[in-house]
């Protein structure tokens, strides 16, 4: 089983440095996880390391394809506030 990184990744290298399995590699347009190498950190740590340091909500998915860090969980910004602010900016 493996986690995966999707397009909202901002290429900050944080996950790359902490992966115990060297499963994460630099790629364009963003970092990727080698599914063959990823162990979900089992046997090394209680929590998957990449998902514990990644600052971007939604960038890392679990094996089932769900966001490990859903909107609001890291920034503390309620998703509806974010939507409202973005809609206001769009309208300008």
């Amino acid at each position: 089983m493996s986690l995966s990184i999707i397009e909202s990744c901002v290429n900050c290298w944080a996950c790359y440095d902490v992966c115990p399995s060297e499963a994460i590699y630099e790629a364009a347009p963003h970092f990727l996880i080698d599914a063959k190498k990823c162990t979900e950190c089992e046997g090394d740590y209680a929590d998957p390391q990449c998902a514990s340091i990644c600052p971007i909500e939604g960038a890392i998915l679990d094996a089932a394809g769900e966001s490990i860090n859903p909107p609001g969980s890291l920034t503390g910004i309620p998703p509806e506030m974010m939507e409202k602010a973005m809609a206001e900016i769009q309208a300008r």
């Binding site: 440095d17 340091i53 600052p55």
Partner: peptide
């Protein structure tokens, strides 16, 4: 130095 180990409320890591 691209990575960070905390989140500040005045920062967007983009």
């Amino acid at each position: 130095a691209p990575a960070c180990n905390i989140q500040c409320h005045y920062c967007n890591r983009k």
